[in-house]
Simulated scan of single mutants.
Amino acid sequence: MTSPEPTGAADPTARAVPTGPTDPKADLRFSLQEARDALLWKLEGLSEYDIRRPMTPTGTNLLGLVKHCASVELGYLGDTFGRPSGEPLPWLDEGADLNADMWATAEESRASLVDLYRRAWAHADATIDALPLDTIGRVPWWQSGRDEVTLHHAVVRVTADTHRHAGHADIVRELLDGAAGMSVRDTSLPSADPAWWERYRNRLEEAAKEADAHT
């Protein structure tokens, strides 16, 4: 089991954990950016086929996760607060195929979707910077009368969603080529030795069988 080796990876010290006086916006931005970076890192070093392959019965795939997360940011941290990005998102139009935001067509390139995601970051970050956290927005796809949300809530929602999908990407990447790790700055893995991981997995398998035998 190894960690992905990113190409042109960022300096591990480039963005440290916020310190000093409490700054809620800085804390929120830090946590959201960690998830964004982790998600894109999982694409690095893979073929066009592998970043698009459906790796679960419900079709989970790496590039589709990026496409989805870009759409989520532009919606919750753009349109919701009267700040439309102007980005065309045909996969969300009325009449689009169900789940069209969760996979990439052959015509949608890796570069175009990664660039869209980065533009979504910039647009979302500009919204966070421009508005107080208690600003009220309205989510266009929520039920009328129950569609109000604060910017604080929207940022937490997007951050939670992105971290969830970064976790999906962790598992998909490990299934594809065995590469694992939490981030380019800290893999959070106890060992890089494949033999150690084989022994570890075997130990878990034996424990599971033993527990099952006792039921």
Rank of each mutant, 00 (worst) to 15 (best):
D23H: 10
P18C: 14
L151A: 11
G8Q: 08
L77T: 02
L113T: 08
W142S: 14
L46N: 00
K42P: 05
I136P: 13
G178F: 02
D27I: 06
Y76T: 03
V184T: 13
N202Q: 15
A166M: 08
D11A: 09
L189I: 02
P54S: 13
P88W: 11
P54E: 10
L131A: 07
T215L: 07
V114Q: 09
L204V: 02
E198R: 15
I136C: 09
L92F: 09
W141T: 13
D129G: 10
W121K: 01
S191Q: 03
H153T: 11
W142L: 15
A154Q: 01
R185K: 14
T127K: 01
R15W: 09
S112L: 01
E87D: 12
P6Q: 13
T150E: 02
L175W: 03
T105H: 12
P88K: 10
W196T: 15
V72R: 04
L131M: 05
S188E: 11
L39F: 04
S71K: 02
G86V: 05
I171R: 08
G145I: 02
L133D: 14
Y117L: 06
T150L: 08
R173L: 13
A192T: 06
A169T: 02
D125F: 10
R83E: 14
T215F: 03
A130V: 05
S47I: 02
P24G: 05
A120E: 07
P88S: 14
P190I: 10
L74W: 10
V66P: 05
S3H: 05
T56W: 14
L32N: 00
D134M: 03
A179C: 11
H165M: 07
V172M: 02
V114F: 09
S3N: 10
